[in-house]
């Protein structure tokens, strides 16, 4: 029962990631691509949590935390680069 739900959820998150990749390739503008990357890292965190439940281990959560921090900083850095032309002024 729970295993089935887990596999369905993994499939849904995978399709979501593929849709994000579609937007990442199609664009059309740079902010769209950054937005797609932003969504992609959030999906990666969801995937890591699901992996943790599948393997019955909590070790993966630490990497989820790291991805959350790194992803946010990189999104902000890219948005700032698009707006100002440099990250650190």
């Amino acid at each position: 029962m729970m295993t089935t739900a887990l596999y369905i959820t993994i499939a849904m998150v995978m399709i979501a990631a593929l849709l994000n990749v579609y937007r990442l390739i199609k664009g059309p503008d740079a902010p769209d691509r950054v937005l797609a990357l932003d969504t992609l890292y959030i999906n990666a965190i969801a995937m890591i949590i699901l992996l943790g439940i599948t393997f019955n281990s909590r070790m993966y959560l630490e990497s989820g935390l790291l991805i959350a921090v790194m992803g946010f900083v990189s999104t902000v850095a890219m948005a700032k680069y698009l707006k100002r032309g440099s990250v650190i002024e």
């Binding site: 399709i15 979501a16 849709l19 994000n20 937007r23 797609a36 969504t39």
Partner: peptide
């Protein structure tokens, strides 16, 4: 529910 919302967000993006 979580998977469905993630999917809906990605559909919206696409």
């Amino acid at each position: 529910v979580g998977g469905a919302f993630t999917l809906v967000g990605a559909i919206g993006l696409a």
